[in-house]
Each structure stands twice: as structure tokens, then as C-alpha cells.
């Protein structure tokens, strides 16, 4: 009898604060149990920059604020069977999407950058320039939720979601028994 292979999991942090990745670690010693069922492929946790092979589950933190985010997300979609949006930034755009509120402007992106680097109060930017190193990915006109760029299979809400909920969801998914959340588990008030 062949032993069941471990599920392959990949993760990425896009336009997020890395808080959701920290939350993954918040499952504490249950990580040991989880690691008996999964192996981590492309992820900041392994520091693999590319997929070594197709994965079963992809976990995305953060939405898309620049072209590189889009590229990574599309790559994840193409290389993962199931894609999970983890946390509010991935699901809705979150805090970074506040720049989408600059609506009544002819050039919202420029206005945003100017305020962030030149005109904003309490700034210390000796160069008075907007950074434009060729290595910097181009920003998008708006911050997009993951679901606007690729199809997302599941959302795990929270900012950041608790280690418990991440663990429970992964365990149920691996057992093929995840059918969405009970209302009580995702209330925050």
C-alpha cells in the first residue's frame, strides 16, 4: 500500500503587511502536526522564489497594488489547484485600497505619490523625489482585490485571521471537508 503523498502548499505575500503570514505561524505547536500532512513549496517561509512543481493549495496574503503582485498572483492561479485569499487585504484590498478613495482627481495615482513623497505633512524625504528605480515594479491605477484578478476558491476573513481559523480551515480542506464557515466563527463584533 502506497502512503498518501503530502499535500503541497505555496504561499505569497502581495500588497499586505506580512501580518497574515505571521498569523500562519500563530498556530504554534500545531504547525508540527500540520507539517506531517503538508510540505511547503514556493513561499517566503521556504524562500523558494519559484514553484518546484504544481501545488495543491496556494495561500495569498494581500491584494494587488503593482504589476509584480499581479504576475505572482496569476502564477499562483496557474500552479495551484485551490487558491485561498487569506485576510482582508487579499479579500477586499484592505488598508492599501484606501488609495482607491482618491476619486475626484484627474490623476489619482500621481496625487497619491506626491502626497506620500513630496507634499505630505511630517515627511522627511531629502531628495524631494518620487522613487523611480528601474527595478521598482509599476504601480497599478488602483489596488485590486485578488478576486478581481483571478478566481479565488476560498476566503479566510480577518485582519489578521487567527492561527486557529487558519489551522482549522487547512485541516478541513485537506480532509475534503471544508464547506465554508459557520457564521459564529467569522464574527468579529
Amino acid at each position: 500500500m502506497t502512503e498518501l503523498r503530502k499535500a503541497r502548499v505555496a504561499t505569497a505575500s502581495l500588497a499586505g503587511c506580512f501580518g497574515c503570514h505571521m498569523a500562519i505561524l500563530d498556530m504554534d505547536e500545531r504547525l508540527i502536526d500540520l507539517m506531517s500532512k503538508v510540505e511547503i513549496d514556493r513561499s517566503p517561509l521556504t524562500d523558494f522564489k519559484q514553484f518546484t512543481r504544481r501545488c495543491d493549495i496556494g495561500i495569498i496574503e494581500g491584494g494587488c497594488c503593482n504589476e509584480e503582485n499581479v504576475h505572482v498572483l496569476q502564477d499562483f492561479r496557474r500552479n495551484c489547484d485551490v487558491l485561498i485569499a487569506l485576510g482582508q487585504c487579499a479579500i477586499m484590498g484592505g488598508l492599501p485600497a484606501m488609495r482607491n478613495a482618491i476619486m475626484h482627481s484627474d490623476a489619482p495615482l500621481r496625487e497619491c505619490l506626491e502626497e506620500a513623497f513630496i507634499t505630505g505633512r511630517n515627511l522627511t524625504n531629502a531628495t524631494h523625489n518620487i522613487p523611480n528605480d528601474p527595478a521598482l515594479p509599476l504601480l497599478l491605477d488602483e489596488v485590486y482585490a485578488c478576486n478581481e484578478v483571478v478566481e479565488i476558491d476560498h476566503n479566510i476573513p480577518g485582519c489578521a485571521p487567527s492561527g486557529d481559523i487558519i489551522y482549522d480551515t487547512l485541516i478541513k480542506l485537506l480532509a475534503g471537508k471544508f464547506h465554508g464557515f459557520e457564521r459564529e466563527t467569522i464574527r468579529f463584533d
Binding site: V70, L109, L138, E148, V150, E151
Partner: peptide, 18 residues
């Protein structure tokens, strides 16, 4: 399974010009 409605070219056009 990527979204056809998301158009990367128009999304980066502003930044390209800036």
C-alpha cells in the same frame, strides 16, 4: 482561471506614463 475582465495594460498605463 484568471479574470478576463482584469486588463493589466490599462491598469499600469498611468504608472507607465508617470
Amino acid at each position: 482561471r484568471t479574470r478576463a475582465t482584469f486588463d493589466i495594460q490599462s491598469a499600469i498605463e498611468n504608472a507607465r506614463q508617470l
